[in-house]
Design a protein around this nucleic acid. Sequence first.
DNA 1: CTCCAGGGAGCCT
DNA 2: AGGCTCCATGGA
Length: 302
Amino acid sequence: MQTGAIDLASIPGPMDLQATLESGQTFRWSRLDGRTYEDPAPSGGDAWYRTVHDGEVIEVRQTAAALEWRSTFDATETLSRRLRLDDDLGSILEEVPGDEVVARAVERFAGMRLVREPFWETLVSFILSAQMRVERIHQLVETLATTYGDPVEWRGETLYSFPSSTALAEQSERDLRDLGVGYRAPYLRETAAMIAAEAVSPAAVASSPYETARETLTSLVGVGPKVADCVLLFSLGFAEPVPLDTWIRSAIEEHFPEAAAGSYDDTSRAIRDRFGPHPGYTQTYVFHHLRTTDRAEVGRGD
DNA sequence: CTCCAGGGAGCCT
DNA sequence: AGGCTCCATGGA
């Protein structure tokens, strides 16, 4: 086991590990204290989080002065990349618009960073996310790993990597359904086969202009504009996507009604203009704020 | 019991 | 292009 610490003073801008990992951007980190995303500890806690990255175990927690990690390898670079520790979040948040809901969201979760999670597991997570609650997505992603992933031994425990596209493509639709993924089973299977066959290259998508990238991803089965936006935002580092889910749509209707009309693309473009130079960041703050707030209190500043 | 969840595919016009 | 219906499953 190796251990290390990333000094918070070395990270440009604020850092909030809990908000970053529990805001529905990623479903591959588990809290070691047994709490779930739906029943989190009070913010400011120092819980350990764990994932398996490319066969390596990484555990991380935030203390007063650092991000502390322990791992099967030197996790510094991987953590920095996955949690976007290089983002100058102080400057980014200064450029977020001052609208009531947005400002309240930033006030609550300043330090929440976008993530840059591995492409395949992000794609699978958001294919499963259709009509599914956040905590349930997390459970299903864990179940997929324990069922089809490769075992990794860690301090007397057996953990599991996320299964490859090939491993999932080999499963029958029936077996996938039996895990509880419901009607998404064929989406998962067919997209796994397409990725295994390299029908879509993550690297090529990542280097494309935003609209082209989104168009390419929607060629995958079970991937429409919303899921594509999530993958581009939470895995491939795009700044523009504003995934229009039920929460954001209702927020747009209430607070930005002039942007609510028209197609997904129309609304997407209109709200991007209102969300400042980092629309994806703005969206993620608003989403997390809404999802963790009673409807009546949204926009209120306590 | 009903309603809904980080939507998308298939079909219709 | 845009609208409608159906799609599993579990929790409130």
